[in-house]
Nucleic acid binder design. Structure first.
Lengths: 246, 246
DNA sequence: GAACGGTGTTGATGTAGATCAAGCCTGGTG
DNA sequence: CACCAGGCTTGATCTACATCAACACCGTTC
């Protein structure tokens, strides 16, 4: 269908969103590459996809198509248990790389869904492996990204295994705040893209508990919440919630 | 101290435990390599270390020395929270690769401790990256291992976030059983290398709860437990515990 | 602008697992 | 061989969170 359009126009458009001119290049796969290297990476990224809010990107069981870098928007990934139970495994924003779970088996092990309109860059994995053999910086960056994902997961395990409801929510808010900051947004005022139910699923809590924890923080003057709009009034206070329990 | 010994002897010894003659080669980093490639990998593995039970291998905060492949024995890794809380992040046995957490930042993010006398092969990471640029099979195997670690962590997150105490313990026992089987041991009778406290830490439970769940399984004829000796009498029954809760 | 469905808040009650406590194995040590 | 410390089990009680329930809010659609 896209082939009906004038090819020239598409080329120009693709050029405009090349890695080298992408504002996320320092967060994403191209971090640490020089301009020549980045150009070679660009050539791998032939597909970009726009996802409407609510649309899935890939599903558990599907063969690995490629990795996906988020250009803009917000996504969640969910792991599924045999019996239908599902849990949010992570929330992903611009610069994050999705699909790493599928490298091991060649098959995706979780579902990913856009929580707002989202644009992703598709990077064919075989080509990426090949190119990263030629570009040590790219190879290393890929390793760094996978390693950081492992460390992040360990943090979530710690949270789920040994923190109270309020501690979990405080950690969650501080983490979001930090990630927004890295991307140039306000650390203290942001809009949650996910529901209470999804936050609860991620934190191992029920939605009512999440709601009560929000209210509790608000009563103590740590934050204000109005539906999905959150403002952090007292970041040190939130951090203190984390250490309070000894 | 080792240099006082006759170098010849050490060389012969090192040869004996080369990757190519290691019984774990299909589980470990050399999986998928041909004999010439394996020989090149062998040359990276200059250090082997024996750890007495209770000894640490590396600690959070230390710079990445290298990756470590377990040749024999049993280890745990623990993530630490700022406030001193600690949680077991995983149990590791022969063929497992340790240290992946440190690639991202260059610094280890967890502690690892031998739970019984253990022998590990040290693989300098920089050399491994270099060699994996020349050997696509090695590169791919490294990626597979990291990806599988991510998938494993997602499984633990699901367990911690949405399973009851008995479900967690059942999943844990079945996982252990499966890993022992892969390594050629009995799937149904094995000796736990960790304490109830460590199992509890890993599963997000207190040791008393772990103990009660063991007793419960025993009363229902699913297993027998006597201290650290476990025998699985009814594997399908244990699997049923996982699905019971809907 | 009325009606509706998805989302969020708040209260009342129930419960799985934590906590506290006591006693029992077991393996290592003098 | 007796002793001891660390590990394990089991019981009684407590509590944080789940569950159930009612209602309020908001954005969408007709």
């Amino acid at each position: 269908m896209g082939s009906a359009r004038a090819p020239r126009l598409i080329d120009v458009n693709e050029l405009r969103v090349a890695c080298s001119s992408c504002s996320l290049r320092e967060l994403c796969l191209p971090a640490g590459l020089d301009s020549g290297e980045m150009e070679r990476l660009d050539r791998l990224v032939t597909h970009r996809r726009k996802l409407r809010r609510g649309t899935g990107l890939y599903h558990a069981g599907e063969p690995l198509a490629g990795l996906f870098a988020i250009r803009s928007g917000f996504m969640k990934s969910c792991v599924l248990h045999d019996d239908g139970r599902e849990q949010v495994a992570g929330f992903h924003m611009a610069g994050d790389l999705l699909g790493l779970d599928a490298i091991g088996s060649g098959t995706h092990t979780c579902d990913t869904v856009a929580l707002e309109d989202t644009e992703v860059c598709e990077i064919p994995f075989a080509s990426l492996e090949q190119l990263s053999r030629e570009l040590p910086s790219l190879q290393h960056q890929l390793h760094r990204i996978m390693s950081r994902e492992i460390v992040r997961d360990h943090g979530v395990m710690l949270l789920l295994g040994s923190m109270s409801a309020e501690e979990r929510l405080a950690a969650f808010l501080l983490n979001l705040s930090q990630r927004f900051t890295t991307r140039g947004y306000s650390p203290s005022a942001f809009r949650l893209r996910m529901t209470r139910q999804e936050i609860g699923s991620y934190l191992g809590l029920k939605l009512e508990t999440v709601s009560r924890a929000f209210s509790g923080f608000q009563e103590r003057g740590l934050i204000t919440v109005r539906q999905k709009e959150v403002r952090i009034l007292d970041a040190p206070g939130l951090k203190a919630v984390l250490d309070s329990k000894r």
